[in-house]
Design a protein around this nucleic acid. Structure first.
Lengths: 163, 163
DNA sequence: ATACATGCAAACATTTTGCTTTGGC
DNA sequence: GCCAAAGCAAAATGTTTGCATGTAT
């Protein structure tokens, strides 16, 4: 049923393998930008940033809260994430699930995802962004500003096709 | 706050202007495919298809239910939509909202959206699909099958920038 | 007649808000 | 000390399921 994609990546832990190093520099950079906006440096801020930076795939608020293991509740994480999104340190993704996903914005990071609709595995797509040009064009034509985009591919992964 | 984009298109009804004609042929075609899969032709099926075919933008289950005006409840619409998605008559979209959006799959229809993060207006992008090639490439490289994609741009519309 | 589809109601998961307390500056 | 942030609890929202009834075939 459709419920098989409720917990992306869960059934195929190997999809988590591309564990990006938690890159302290990236975190410090983000913190610096946040502090410039007047945000205070709290334990939760560090914990959430660290959690996101260490993840190879977008996380939900629930997942982040779980990862904090008691060091924060969903409401606090929710508000923290809102601030991070406002500050453009974190990006929000839709991903066709009940919950929203959040991903740290890093220079040169991936912008497209490949998701299996059966097992929920989430993988990155290592391609130069194919819509950068269109986005540029769009900004000029539509009058919209601060353009961002979300590009996701959905399909059936080789493993699930066997079944 | 983030709550401003809870009701896409609501504040700017003019974004609904490109009202696609409910195209009876498209509906009949969809029904034919559904019947071939063993689905029964019910009042709700017609109503939901008609509703989706007539909408210029994706709709949530709640919106569809409201549009039916008493002729169906959320649970029935939910199950109907699941069947339609299974049958590839309807496409599911994430759109970074709490609710999921659904759109009828039509030959030659738009595949990308432009959304204002402030007022929630949803507009279509009239561009040839810029990722068709990548999708093809991806299918070959990743081993994934049945590939579909979702491409959405988020930004600030000209109206909202004034404010 | 049989199974699929619907409606109603209830359960669930996740987000969102209110309010009090904590802790960074 | 002041005010943003965290914690706790509860409300809100939208999805999902169970079960009895209806209805297309």
């Amino acid at each position: 049923m459709a419920t098989t994609c409720q917990h992306p990546g869960h059934k195929h832990p190997e999809h988590r393998r591309r564990q990006a190093a938690p890159d302290p520099a990236a975190i410090e950079d983000a913190v610096a930008r946040l502090r410039a906006r007047g945000l205070r440096r709290t334990r939760l801020l560090d914990a959430v940033l660290c959690c996101l930076a260490a993840s190879p795939r977008p996380l939900t608020i629930g997942e982040i809260t779980t990862a904090l293991d008691g060091a924060g509740d969903p409401a606090s994480v929710y508000r923290m994430i809102e601030r991070l999104v406002q500050a453009a340190v974190v990006r929000r993704l839709g991903l066709q699930e009940r919950a929203l996903y959040y991903q740290m914005i890093l220079p040169g990071h991936h912008c497209a995802w490949l998701i299996c609709q059966h097992c929920g595995a989430i993988g990155e797509i290592d391609a130069g962004c194919p819509v950068a040009e269109l986005e540029h064009h769009l900004a000029a034509q539509s009058g919209y500003s601060d353009l961002q985009h979300e590009l996701t591919f959905y399909g059936t992964c080789p493993e699930c096709r066997k079944t």
